[in-house]
Design a protein around this nucleic acid. Structure first.
Length: 420
RNA sequence: GGAGGCGUCGCCUAGUCCGGUCUAUGGCGCCGCACUGCUAAUGCGGUUUGGGUUCAUCGCCCAUCGAGGGUUCAAAUCCCUCCGCCUCCGCCA
């Protein structure tokens, strides 16, 4: 949810953001009108309500005929108050519904355009040169008995899989490495709920444009989360945080569930695009003026992790039209996948500024004035199951074995994965 | 799943039976001021949150006693539904 004060004071900035995203800018004026209607309706209700209250006190003291006369007047007043309250509530609902349709105000630096209009900020490492025909990650994994797609499909359907033997060990090693790095940098590790209430799903911004991406457990009205970001964003809902000692940083470990609706036929081979995977996610609550700096820190920690698994990658600055609703800016790190001859997303870090926190009512004492103000939230990937794809393909050898990156060896207990 | 108890403005707590000066009591904590070599102690004052009005401050007003409805001129208080926590019973990976 965006700041309606900004909307009132600088509507042009919001219109520009909508244009950059390729979305309706007319909604800005609709919201301004709805806000005006909401205020006047509320003022009217409050005026009458104040009158009703003061008359109520007179009734309490009056006796006999005076009391009967007052009661007659106040009965009519009660009916009016009720009607005006209904109108004020309706105006508030209309306003809320409109505001919720608008995405976060994008940062001015964000590239304009859609999915293909990203800007490459940096390329790190060099794609490996093989003097043999490289195998793709699934061929490698099957030879290593690391992944079992067939039985995954038998048990749960397409896009499900088993990680088996060294595959399971490799994932655990990777996730442990990620948690260890997060702890080293002061994050609090968290194992989060993966079923959440609809308010939490909505607050994190996952029931807006991409609601069909989400699994819903109908009998209990709960949602399976596609990232621990959801639970971590809801963790401090309705709280006033103390950020005077710096940002609060959490590292969430969770299974992630995605319906992958609308991606039929895409990435059907292997574990690149699957319905369930594991992820270690960084999540930060910080002051709004620190958000851009924190975003760079999160990106830095993602790069540190990618360096540890020794895969070539590039960093892109996602264009406005490809940002999620809550994000004001997003950087993706994409690893080189040799058999595809292109870079594929391994991490994504978003600066959601106050968008999520405003929906969740997460505030701090205003350090510059009185009262409270909304905090900023940011998130970023530290490791996921998909990383296995890049690790296997980039570190493969002619005989189908895979060299384990040095940083993973202490967690995996193996230097080389060999086909059985 | 069943029975019972509970949910009050940071924490604890009074108030709920029997609706109206509840403008929600008191303690702790916290903030400010005073006093005092310093600290402590003490005294005085302040301290829920969200919103409206206002250029803004002050002030005034509205909402807020787990959430949402209802009854009533009037609800922390009465009624209904839901949520959460605790105790016991049942069931179960």
């Amino acid at each position: 949810m965006i700041d309606t004060k900004l909307l009132r004071e600088d509507p042009e900035r919001v219109r520009a953001s909508q244009r950059a995203r390729g979305e309706d800018e007319g909604i800005v004026d609709e919201i301004l009108a709805a806000e005006q209607a909401r205020r006047s309706s509320l003022t009217e209700f409050e005026r009458l309500r104040a009158e009703q209250k003061s008359m109520g006190k007179q009734v309490a003291q009056a006796r006999g005929e005076d009391r009967q006369a007052l009661l007659a007047r106040t009965r009519d007043l009660a009916a009016d108050v009720k009607r005006l309250q209904g109108e004020a509530d309706a105006a508030q609902d209309r306003f809320d519904a409109l505001v919720r349709r608008i995405g976060n105000v994008v940062e001015p630096e964000v590239p304009v355009g859609g999915e293909d209009d990203y800007v490459v900020l940096e390329t790190v490492g060099t794609p490996p040169e093989f003097d043999f025909e490289p195998r793709d990650h699934l061929a490698l994994a099957e030879a290593l008995r690391a992944v079992d797609m067939e039985r995954g499909a038998k048990v749960s359907g397409s896009r499900f899989y088993f990680l088996t033997g060294v595959g399971a060990r490799l994932e655990l090693a990777l996730l442990h490495l990620a948690v260890a790095q997060a702890v080293e940098h002061g994050f609090t590790p968290m194992i989060t709920p993966t079923l959440v209430k609809s308010e939490v799903m909505a607050g994190a911004g996952f029931l807006d444009a991409h609601a069909d991406e989400v699994y819903r457990v109908e009998a209990d009205d709960l949602y399976l989360t596609g990232t621990s970001e959801v639970a971590l964003a809801g963790y401090h809902a309705d709280e006033i945080l103390d950020l005077s000692q710096g940002p609060m940083r959490y590292a969430g470990w969770s299974a992630c569930y995605r319906r992958e609706a609308g991606s039929y036929g895409k990435d059907t081979r292997g574990i690149i695009r699957v319905h369930q995977f594991h992820k270690v996610e960084m999540f930060t609550y910080c002051r709004v003026e620190d958000a851009a700096t924190e975003h760079q820190r999160l990106l830095g920690w993602e790069k540190e992790m990618l360096g540890k698994v020794e895969v070539p990658y590039r960093v892109i600055d996602t264009a406005a039209g490809d940002l999620g609703g809550p994000a004001a800016r997003k950087f993706d790190c994409e690893a080189w996948v040799p058999t595809q001859g292109r870079y594929r997303e391994l991490t994504s870090t978003s600066n959601c500024t106050t968008f999520q926190a405003r929906r969740f009512g997460i505030r701090e004492r205003d350090p510059h004035g009185s009262g409270t103000r909304t905090v900023a939230t940011l998130n970023g990937t530290l490791a996921t199951t998909r990383w296995i794809v890049a690790i296997l393909e980039n570190h493969q050898q002619a005989d189908g074995s895979v060299v384990v990156p040095a940083a993973l060896r202490p967690y995996l207990g193996l230097e080389v994965l060999r086909p059985e």
